[in-house]
Design a binder for these strands. Structure first.
Lengths: 361, 361
DNA sequence: ATTTATTTTGGGAACGATCCCATTTTTTTG
DNA sequence: CAAAAAAATGGGATCGTTCCCAAAATAAAT
C-alpha cells in the first residue's frame, strides 16, 4: 500500500531567510556572518549572531550536506556492545575523530546481518563521510560493503575483518596470541586442551583456532578432533558443549575459549559440576574483558589494546579522508595495522604452588 | 581563520535525475516509481527499479529530510556504555523503534557535558524526529534540552531524569528499591551501614541516598554522617573512600553502593585488606550489571528491567510522535512510567549458615 | 576630485528529493 | 464513436544552505 506521508506542520526551526528578513538584509550576508566569512561588516555580523541566538537558530545539516556533498560525520558500525570490547574501541575512535572535527554516530545491529545491511544503507543515505565497522557473525556476503566502496566512501574494518575485501584493517595478531595462550597451557602441564571456537564466518575465530592447532602440533600433542567445537557465540551453546566436554570418557584438562564471555560461561558449568579451576581444568579466554578480572578464579586471557584499536581505525580513516578521498585499492594492498596483544596470566590457568606465606613487613 | 571548504569532487552517487535521463522520462515519474506510488505504469516501474539497482542508486536522505521536514530517525543519547546498563536499554529501545519503522542513531558522550550539548545540537541539526536521553553526571544546566523542546522535538528521559524539565520519563522507584536493599541489610543483622552515594547531579543518586537514610530511620538506627560519602563515580575515588571507611575506629559492617561498579571496586579494596565478604562486611550494589553475578562472592544487588526501560522509553516517544507532534506540557504533567525493580540476594550480603552438605542423587 | 582598490552586500544557481497541478494518454462508458 | 473517467506522465515550486558573480558602498591613492 502506498502511504502518502502528511507534510508535517511547518517546521519550527528558524532559517537564515527568517533572520535575513528580520534584519532586512540578504540571506547571503546572513550565511556569511554565520559561517565566519571575513567579508562582512562587524556590526552586521553582531546583529546576525545576536538574532540567531535569540531565535534559536539551528543550522540545517541536511541542507548543508546537500550542497556541500559531505557531512563531517563518521558512521561506526558494531555488532554488539554487551562486552566491553566494542564500547572501548568506540571510545578510542571517538577521541580521534572529535579532535579532527568529525562527528560520530553509532549504529548497532545486535549481530543481525539484515540490520547491518540496513544500517550501512542508512549511513550511506545520510551521506556520511566515512565508516568504520566490525561485521556481524552472520555476515558472509559483503556486497553492502562493496557498495560503500563503489560510492568512494572510505571504509575501515577492525577486529572482524574480511579477506575478500581489500579494505584498510586494524587487527591484532590473533594467530600468534592464540598460539601463545595455548603454549602457556602446555607449559604448565596440560595435555588434553579443548577449544571452544567461534563461527567460521569470523576471521579471528579461524585464526585463533589455527593458533590453537599449531601450538599442539608444535609441541607434538596429538590433536583430538573431539576436543574442538565451533559454535555460534550464544551462551546456551557454551553450556551444552561444555557439559559434553566434561562428560567425555577422557575429559579435557584445559580449555581455550574464543573469548571471555565464552570462558566465563564455561567456568560456570565447571563449577556447577563441582570441579575446581584451575586444579581440575585450566581456563583461558580472549580479549581481557572487564569481567575477566572479576570472576572467580580470575581469568587468564589475552588482552587487546581496545582503545588503540579504536584510535588507529580512526586515524586510518582520517588518512583516507585526507588523501583526496580516492581509496582505490584495486592494485595495491590496503594498509593494515597490527597491534600488540599481551597474555595476562591469572588464577584460572595455573595451579597454585603450595608456598609458605611470606610475612609482609 | 575562515576556511573555505573545497567542494568535494562531484559525488559518485546516482540521483533520480540520472535515472530519468537514461530512461528519457521525467524525474517525477522516477520518484513515483521508486517510492511505490500507484500511478505509474508497471513497465515503467520495472525499468526504473532495474536501472536504479544497476546504477547503485541510494536515496539521498538529506534531500528527503529537507523536503519532508522529518527524517524517520531517532537519536539516542547515553553518557557511557562500559557497564551493561545502557547497552541493554538501547537494545530494548531499538527493538521498538525498528518495529515502528524508525532508524536509530546513538550518540555517546563519555560523561562529558560539553559533548552532550554538542551531540544534542548535532541531532537537532540533522533534524531527528525525536530523542531519548540519559544525561551526564556533569549536567546541571538543561538549556540544551529546553532547546529541543522549543523546537517541538519529542524528548524522553530515562534513568537519569530531570526534575526541572517536564519531560516524559521512564524510571524505576529508586527510593523504595534502595530502602528495600538497606532493610535487607538491617534484617540480616547489620547496624553500621555505610553508603557510597553518587553525585547530587543525578536524581537517582539522591533518591537512593534518601532511601538509605529512611531505612535507617525506620529501624531506629542512628545515622552516622561519617558513613556516607558522595563521589563522582570514578573508580579511584571508590578506593580512597573505601579505604577510609575500613580504617575508621568503628568501621562499617555493611556497604550500600550507588551502583554495581562501585560495589565491585569496593569489594576489591575489602579483599585486599584481607577482610572477608560477607562475614566482616556485607556489600550491596544496584542495577544488576552482568558482572554482578561474576564477582566473588556474587553480588547482592537491585535488578532493573533494562530492556523494558528501553522499550517503554521508545513507546513513550512514539506516542508523542503520533499525537500530532505537539508535546506541550506547559500545563499538564508529562507521563512518567515507573518500572519494577527486584532485590537479588546473592552471597555478598548474607553470612552462610553452617549447614550439612546435602548429598546429591 | 577623480580614479582605483577594497570591503561589503545582493541575486540566483545548485544540491536531490517530493508533491501539487496541469497535461497527455489510455480506458471505460453510454 | 464521442464523451467522460481513469491512469500515467511532465513541469516546476519547494525545502535551507553555500558559493559564484556582479553590483554597490566605502576607503585609499593619485
Amino acid at each position: 500500500m502506498y502511504v502518502l506521508y502528511p507534510l508535517i506542520m511547518k517546521t519550527k526551526y528558524t532559517s537564515i531567510i527568517d533572520i535575513a528578513k528580520q534584519l532586512n538584509i540578504s540571506k547571503s550576508t546572513v550565511s556569511r556572518a554565520l559561517t565566519g566569512h571575513p567579508n562582512v561588516h562587524a556590526q552586521t555580523r553582531k546583529a546576525v549572531l545576536d538574532l540567531a541566538q535569540q531565535m534559536d537558530y539551528q543550522r540545517n545539516s541536511l541542507a548543508l550536506g546537500l550542497t556541500r556533498h559531505h557531512t563531517n560525520t563518521i558512521g561506526v558500525l558494531v555488532p554488539e556492545f554487551m562486552s566491553t570490547y566494542f564500547p572501548s574501541v568506540i571510545l578510542g575512535a571517538q577521541e580521534v575523530f572529535q579532535a579532527a572535527g568529525y562527528q560520530v554516530v553509532i549504529c548497532h545491529n545486535n549481530e543481525s546481518y539484515d540490520m547491518e545491511v540496513a544500517n550501512v544503507k542508512l549511513l550511506l543515505s545520510y551521506r556520511v563521510d566515512g565508516i568504520i565497522a566490525s561485521h556481524t557473525k552472520e555476515t558472509r556476503n559483503f556486497d553492502h560493503f562493496r557498495l560503500v566502496q563503489r560510492h568512494g566512501i572510505p571504509l575501515v574494518f577492525f577486529n572482524r575483518v574480511s579477506e575478500e575485501l581489500n579494505v584498510p584493517n586494524v587487527v591484532v595478531d590473533d594467530y600468534s596470541a592464540a598460539l601463545e595462550a595455548v603454549e602457556h597451557l602446555i607449559k604448565t602441564g596440560r595435555r588434553r586442551i579443548a577449544h571452544l571456537a567461534g563461527p567460521d564466518s569470523l576471521i579471528n575465530s579461524r585464526l585463533r583456532r589455527q593458533g590453537y592447532l599449531d601450538a599442539l602440533k608444535k609441541h607434538k600433542i596429538p590433536i583430538d578432533p573431539g576436543l574442538m567445537l565451533s559454535y555460534d557465540l550464544t551462551i546456551e551453546k557454551v553450556r551444552i558443549y561444555m557439559k559434553h566436554f566434561l562428560e567425555l570418557p577422557a575429559p579435557p584438562d584445559a580449555l581455550f575459549a574464543i573469548n571471555d564471555p565464552t570462558a566465563i560461561a564455561a567456568m560456570e558449568v565447571v563449577k556447577e559440576k563441582g570441579w575446581s579451576i584451575p586444579e581440575d581444568i585450566a581456563i583461558v579466554g580472549f580479549s581481557n574483558d572487564f569481567s575477566a578480572q572479576l570472576v572467580f578464579p580470575r581469568l587468564t586471557t589475552v588482552s587487546q589494546p581496545t582503545l588503540d584499536i579504536g584510535r588507529e581505525s580512526a586515524r586510518l580513516l582520517l588518512q583516507e579522508l585526507q588523501s583526496g578521498a580516492k581509496p582505490d585499492y584495486t592494485n595495491r594492498k590496503a594498509p593494515c595495522v597490527q597491534l600488540k596483544t599481551k597474555l595476562i596470566i591469572r588464577d584460572s590457568s595455573v595451579r597454585k604452588p603450595v608456598v609458605k606465606k611470606k610475612g609482609k613487613k
